[in-house]
C-alpha cells in the first residue's frame, strides 16, 4: 500500500478523499441535523445534468456540475419556500430532470467521453489536478461561509420560527445552505458519484452523532470519520479495482452499525 503513494493518481485520489471529507463533515452535519437528506439527494442526483452538459460543451464536467447544481439547488429552495407545491414532488421533479438531461447530453456529446457509470458511482482515476484545485476552492468557500453564518445556520436548523421573531434572515440562510450543499456535491462527485454522494454526506455524521452533543465537535468527528471511510475505500479501489463510491459505502455502513451498537451498549451501562 505504501509504495502505491509514489503514483500520482493514488496521491490525487487520497487528496480528493480528504477534500471530500471536509465538505462531508461540515455540510453533512447540517444535512443530518436539519433532516434535509432527501433534499440533498435531489440536489446530488440533479448534478448529473451539469456533468452531461459539461461533456457536451467539452468543458470540465465538474465545472458544468458546479453551475447546474447551484441553479437546481436554488430552484428547489425557492419553489419549496415560495409556492404551495408539495416539497417531495418539487424535489423529485428537479431530481429526474437533472438525470434525464445528464443522459441526453452525454449521448449527444461529440467524441469519446468517459461513460456515465464513472459519474454515477465515482471514478477516482479521472481526478485531474484542475479538479483538485476546484475542489479545494469550493471547500474554502464552504468553510468561510459556515464560519460567517454559523449563528444563522444553527438557528435555522433548530428553530426557524424563533429565528424569524428575532429578525434572523431564515429564508436567505436556507438558500445559502442549499447552495453549500450543491458545492459539496461537486466536491464529492469524483469520489462518490452522483448516486452515492448522499452516503458520504449522511453516514459519517450519523456515526459521529453517537459520540457527541456539540455541533462543532460533530463536524470535526464527521470529517475524521469521512477521512477514515474514504481512505479505506480508496485502498479497496486500488487493491481490487472496485468503483470508489461503492467501496467507501462498504466501509461506512459497518462503521455506522458499530457506532450504533457501541452507543446502545454505553447507554445501557449508564442506566
Amino acid at each position: 500500500m505504501i509504495e502505491a503513494l509514489q503514483y500520482d493518481f493514488v496521491r490525487n485520489a487520497l487528496l480528493a478523499g480528504l477534500l471530500a471529507s471536509v465538505a462531508c463533515g461540515v455540510i453533512g452535519t447540517y444535512v443530518v441535523v436539519k433532516k434535509i437528506v432527501f433534499m440533498s439527494g435531489g440536489i446530488s442526483h440533479a448534478s448529473l445534468g451539469g456533468i452531461g452538459i459539461g461533456q457536451f460543451l467539452g468543458i470540465n464536467p465538474l465545472l458544468g456540475a458546479f453551475f447546474y447544481t447551484l441553479a437546481s439547488a436554488i430552484g428547489m429552495g425557492v419553489v419549496v419556500r415560495r409556492t404551495k407545491l408539495p416539497e417531495d414532488v418539487t424535489i423529485g421533479a428537479l431530481w429526474v430532470l437533472g438525470m434525464a438531461l445528464g443522459v441526453i447530453f452525454h449521448d449527444l456529446a461529440p467524441g469519446t467521453v468517459p461513460g456515465l457509470p464513472s459519474y454515477l458511482f465515482g471514478d477516482l482515476s479521472l481526478t485531474s489536478s484542475s479538479d483538485l484545485i476546484l475542489m479545494a476552492a469550493l471547500d474554502a468557500v464552504i468553510i468561510l461561509t459556515v464560519s460567517l453564518l454559523y449563528k444563522e445556520f444553527l438557528i435555522l436548523s433548530f428553530d426557524e420560527e424563533f429565528g424569524e421573531s428575532v429578525g434572523a434572515p431564515m429564508e436567505k440562510s436556507y438558500l445559502v445552505l442549499l447552495c453549500l450543499i450543491a458545492l459539496s456535491v461537486v466536491v464529492m462527485v469524483r469520489v462518490m458519484g452522483v448516486i452515492l454522494v448522499i452516503a458520504l454526506l449522511a453516514l459519517p455524521v450519523a456515526t459521529g452523532w453517537q459520540f457527541t452533543h456539540s455541533l462543532k465537535k460533530l463536524m470535526l468527528f464527521s470529517i475524521l470519520l469521512g477521512l477514515i471511510s474514504t481512505t479505506l475505500g480508496i485502498g479497496l479501489w486500488y487493491e481490487f479495482n472496485l468503483a470508489s463510491g461503492p467501496a467507501i459505502v462498504l466501509v461506512s455502513i459497518p462503521l455506522f452499525a458499530l457506532s450504533f451498537l457501541f452507543a446502545r451498549l454505553r447507554r445501557r451501562r449508564v442506566e
Binding site: V33, F158, G163, G167, A168, H213
Partner: peptide
C-alpha cells in the same frame, strides 16, 4: 425538534441575543 439535537441549554439561550 430531534431529542438528540447537538445543542446545549446555554447555546439555545444565546440564540435570543441574535437581534
Amino acid at each position: 425538534f430531534d431529542r438528540d439535537f447537538p445543542l446545549s441549554a446555554l447555546e439555545v439561550v444565546l440564540m435570543g441575543r441574535y437581534g
